[in-house]
Design a protein around this nucleic acid. Sequence first.
DNA 1: TCCCACAATTGACATTTGTCAGCCGCTCTG
DNA 2: CAGAGCGGCTGACAAATGTCAATTGTGGGA
Lengths: 322, 322
Amino acid sequence: MGIRPADQIIHKAAWLYYAHSMRQDEVARELNISRASVAMYLRKARETGIVSISASTRLFADDVLARQLEDALGLAGVWVVPATTRTQDPHSEVPVVAASVFLDLVRPGTRVGVAWGRTVYTIAALMAHADLQGVTVVQLCGNLGAPYSYRPDECTMEIARRLNAKGINIYAPLVLSTEKLAAQLRSEPVIREQLEGIARCDLALFSVGTVDDDSHVVRCGAVDLDELAELRRLGAAGVVAGRIIDAQGKSLDCDYNSRLISADLDSLRAIPKRLVVVQEESKFGPLKAALAGGLCTHLVLGAYMARRLLDEGSSLQSATEK
Amino acid sequence: MGIRPADQIIHKAAWLYYAHSMRQDEVARELNISRASVAMYLRKARETGIVSISASTRLFADDVLARQLEDALGLAGVWVVPATTRTQDPHSEVPVVAASVFLDLVRPGTRVGVAWGRTVYTIAALMAHADLQGVTVVQLCGNLGAPYSYRPDECTMEIARRLNAKGINIYAPLVLSTEKLAAQLRSEPVIREQLEGIARCDLALFSVGTVDDDSHVVRCGAVDLDELAELRRLGAAGVVAGRIIDAQGKSLDCDYNSRLISADLDSLRAIPKRLVVVQEESKFGPLKAALAGGLCTHLVLGAYMARRLLDEGSSLQSATEK
DNA sequence: TCCCACAATTGACATTTGTCAGCCGCTCTG
DNA sequence: CAGAGCGGCTGACAAATGTCAATTGTGGGA
């Protein structure tokens, strides 16, 4: 896809302004348009990723806690958001950092998988626009039937839009009523191809879900409260891409999981970079489970959660090193 | 190398301003400093690469000529700078584009090699600052004894400085008086190691030199006019990283080349991405030679030169496809 | 051909940002 | 311990940028 002729002028204005550090009135004179137009073009250029402005995330990666966590958990990268953000509560800072980190990790020509959830959607909405060429964004899990906010396909498409990338959705329900139907659907060529494509990703972005009564999977109607209680009895510890995992981070052997159309954990682990973002304190248990299962290579979280992880870290370390 | 405590405040200001889109007065209030200080910190943040602003180079890569050249010469990327830059002569635009393209090609953790010359030095001086972690910049050729501007080590160090990278210089003369001495020096562990490190680069940046009487190698005192005339008689067609090449892009079998401390062409070709930048029209011949020898994968040049290359392209194509 | 609807562009004004002389506090020195 | 020297910070002003109502251009339908 080439540059649309209408974009040509935007490119030129952006180039003169940003690459040559010309002033807007100089650019206007150069292109024979009004300065107001230049200002408008420049805004468009920023919005469409023709120019990208990014702030270093080292502020968060250089944190002492971050380093300790990297060592303790054997992760490739950890970003700790301090609790002392004066502006607002530290939780809302986590997705901002995550969006920057995510952009740092995406490279032109790569394939990224995104799961769903409030956290992921918030990140998508906060993310700067970029013009990465040849990037493909794939959806890691099926959709939910009900008209629910933060739909998986919305997360995928919004991120794809912001990266100027191609978005590939999975047009299948996240969870079906019988195992048999799920299996049949999974072997449909269209769906199978997409599920197989997950393991070929270079980068994955997801959060973890809780398994308490206020859980995302409950609120979006994927499981009811009785079912969830039963799952907890069986050892459910968290949710990753719609799939229930146990405390060891393994897919819980249960009816619910067998009825899913979603990335399986082996495919997920086949992705080299797996960025997990955790906002709420309530996700401590699920996060531990995901870490134990080696589902995470890069981690963005708040300082308080980081502290808790380190304090309970000794047991985790052995688990991830197995 | 962690963040120096003095940089902490700069990082914070940059983060609040660029990641949160706060206004300078808001940032100032947040950090309890004056707005003037915030403005100063932000300038520093831009200058040190804590925040990076980059404009897309697609404007130049989407040019029709660029596409045709890519196909005709089998190159991975071509950027054509149009002749119609109203601001100034098109030649001075080439290094600006080259600097942006170069920054797009460098990735954190990679190793880049840079040669020397006016063009390379101009690019270095124009290049935006970035904070790429784990990058190493290595010098592709030895130094010249005389106090000459655009010294190879200056090119290397300036680029390293702008990338916040580690610079590795070759502390040896580019050309020695006898073949024997050059050979001895090349087998010195310090030098040998550096020369061997060249092939391990991921990216190289260089230009091509002419072999006429006004050539860089003459002006910097590496060869005298008589010697150069003799070299031309032997078939010299251009200069790459201080080495004389013939019209087929092979290292010219001559006394001068045997006395060099510089990247050999095989090492150079072992580097996956080789960005060649050509400014002056007089470099047409040398560029053809370099292309014939497969020394180039990515190319930045002016529209007029691109046109000439395409017109004479048929012969080149067969040469590079051999 | 005329007219209308819609989008792009502009001029004028409001807001935000860059700059620099002067000031403050600190250290080093005689 | 006074005073010079220095680096960083600030206040006030100048410059640059963002915004929006009004205007101009443009294509399509009657």
